[in-house]
C-alpha cells in the first residue's frame, strides 16, 4: 500500500512537483525498498526515451500544400445543408399532411346533402311505383282517370310532379 502511494509521488517527482517534505519521504523509502528503486529506474528509462525521441520534419512545401487545400474547402457546404434540410423536411411535411387530413375529417362540420326525390325514396327503401299505386287505389275511378291524364300531360311537358 505504501509502495503504491509512493509510486504517485515518484511520478510527480519526475515533473518536479514535490514539496521538500514529500521529497524526503520518497528518498527515505527508496533507500529501503529495492522494488520501488527498480520501478523508478524503469520510469526514468521510459520518460527519457520519450523526451529524447527524434521527430522527422513535416513534408516539404507544407504551407503551399495547405494553401491549395484551403482553396478547395468551403466552410459551409450548401448542398450538404440542403440535403440535411430535405432529410428533415420529408417526415415533417408528411406529419403536417396527416394532421391536416385528421383535422378535416374530425373537426370540420359535416354538410347536409340535399337529396332528390327519387334518391330520398331510394334511401327510405320505398318504390316510387308502389307509392303511385297506393295513391291511385284510394281514389275513385273518375279521379284516377283525371290524375292519369294530368300525369301524362306533365310527362310530355317534362315537368316532374311533386307529391304533397
Amino acid at each position: 500500500m505504501k509502495c503504491k502511494k509512493l509510486e504517485k509521488l515518484m511520478m510527480r517527482s519526475f515533473d518536479g512537483r514535490l514539496t521538500t517534505k514529500e521529497k524526503d519521504v520518497l528518498e527515505s523509502h527508496l533507500k529501503s525498498c529495492s522494488l520501488c528503486q527498480s520501478k523508478k529506474e524503469d520510469y526514468k528509462k521510459i520518460l527519457d526515451f520519450l523526451k529524447e525521441q527524434d521527430f522527422p520534419k513535416p513534408k516539404p512545401y507544407f504551407w503551399e500544400r495547405l494553401k491549395s487545400r484551403l482553396h478547395g474547402q468551403y466552410p459551409y457546404e450548401p448542398i450538404v445543408l440542403w440535403k440535411q434540410w430535405t432529410i428533415k423536411a420529408i417526415p415533417v411535411s408528411f406529419l403536417i399532411a396527416v394532421l391536416i387530413a385528421v383535422t378535416t375529417i374530425f373537426l370540420l362540420p359535416s354538410r347536409e346533402v340535399e337529396l332528390s326525390q327519387s334518391e330520398e325514396l331510394f334511401f327510405r327503401d320505398l318504390s316510387p311505383i308502389q307509392e303511385t299505386i297506393t295513391a291511385l287505389e284510394g281514389e275513385e275511378i273518375e279521379n284516377k282517370n283525371m290524375m292519369l291524364i294530368f300525369a301524362s300531360i306533365e310527362e310530355q311537358n317534362g315537368i316532374r310532379r311533386y307529391l304533397p
Partner: peptide, 10 residues
C-alpha cells in the same frame, strides 16, 4: 502525421 496536421490547420 503530415495529413493530420494539414487537416488540423484547415
Amino acid at each position: 502525421a503530415d495529413d493530420l496536421s494539414q487537416e488540423i490547420f484547415i
